[in-house]
Computed example of a mutant assay.
Amino acid sequence: MKIVADENIPLVEAFFSRLGEVVRIPGRAMTAEDVQDADALIVRSVTKVNPALLDGSNVKFVGTCTIGVDHLDQHYLDSKSIRWASAPGCNANSVVEYVYAALCHLNINWLPVKFGIIGCGNVGGLLYKRLKAQGVDVRCYDPNLTSAQNPDLTSLDDVLACDVISMHTPLVTTGDHPSFHLISHRELHQLKKGAVLINCGRGAVIDNQALLEVLQSRTDLRVVLDVWEPEPDISLELLDKVLLGSPHIAGYSYDGKLNGTEMIYQSFCQHMNIAPQASLTELVPSLENNQLRIDEKKSAGDIFEIAKQLIRQVYDIEADDARLRDIARDAMAGRIHFGEGFDGLRKFYPKRREFHNYQVHLESVTQADKQWLQVLGFCCV
């Protein structure tokens, strides 16, 4: 059996080599020739899985180690009786931690603000639950949910009136509720003065050209983009206008990627009607050097200041931004093709571990504050 996999999928050999020969290939450069004699295909979001890739191949199973599936031609796969699977929720925690890290980097305390979420599926739903557990006033827009599923559902206009808006919607181009260019000129001009707009979902849910035009006149808006339209050849003008930019890595924590690998491995075993023989608990040891401490005099008991100290020790989001801007400068100087640099940042992304891997030592913090930090994911001792 031959299994073709995106080269950026961690532990793919550890999981899948027990089932067949694993061949790693750059995901964005994957061709029909690469997969012609493959029995299974394991991808991430950069690979378009469609007739152009699979017609004439032996592929009978496609797994994407991602939450999103808009890169899969599901109708085609179903019509060809090709079993396909995704990894819903695998990196939701990673993306939520990215949002918290971005807010800390911008020094925006999310506790007293009105917080809007667009798209409350696996990622947005997790962010919603954590914010509510921290006592935040949250408003949500998701036309695919009911008020019974989320009591804070409201209109898109109401969400756009919030102080912070975080976007987590998949890219949908058909049906009753398409998300393509959901946010364009009209919606952007609705944003209140000084509003924060974060997009960690899909780039084309925001009309990037409209965003660039609005930011050229509205310097008050604070924008964080992890996803772009198009990728990898994004608008360098837009990158220059946003306060924080990254190369589609919000969900790129090592833990999130490992979850995706394991979930697709389990789906493939189910497809093969065999029992899984590998697991993350077996393959991944506990993190060493995981002890965190804070300067309690500097924080003065302010839970937001404590959170900023802890998150910066775990995840240096500013470094993600700096690396992307370095690539942009090199591209403008003719030293590199920007798209290749963008993909290179993803391919060689540093191993980022999630908050739950770390223990926090606190001496003069209340039990309520410890519980608040545990909502963030930290283990408080």
Score class of each variant (00 low, 15 high):
K129G: 04
N58M: 08
A148K: 13
F304G: 03
I67Y: 08
Q74L: 14
H71K: 06
S166C: 10
D176H: 09
V49G: 09
R325D: 00
L111V: 13
D330Q: 15
V49P: 10
D142I: 05
D321E: 02
V172K: 15
L310K: 06
V23Y: 09
C120K: 08
E262V: 06
D321C: 05
V360C: 04
S57H: 02
Q367D: 14
C162N: 12
G119W: 01
L221D: 04
P230R: 03
L72H: 01
P178M: 07
T219E: 15
N50K: 08
A133R: 12
D158Y: 01
D369C: 10
S17V: 11
H181S: 01
D343W: 06
R353A: 02
R335V: 08
V375D: 01
P230K: 11
K308D: 03
I42N: 08
D137T: 12
D316F: 14
R18T: 12
D369G: 03
V69C: 10
L292G: 04
L292P: 01
K351N: 08
A275S: 15
C380W: 13
Q313F: 12
A5Y: 10
I327G: 02
V314L: 07
L171V: 05
E231C: 04
A307I: 13
V4T: 15
N8E: 13
E13V: 05
A368L: 09
S166D: 11
V205S: 07
N91M: 06
A14M: 03
D369F: 13
K114T: 15
S286D: 15
V381L: 11
A133F: 05
E305W: 05
N58R: 15
C162M: 12
L182T: 09
L225W: 09
A210K: 03
I82T: 06
M263E: 10
S86A: 14
R24F: 09
L212G: 02
E288Q: 15
S267V: 05
F16T: 07
Q149C: 01
L225Y: 11
V59L: 01
N109V: 07
S94I: 11
T173W: 00
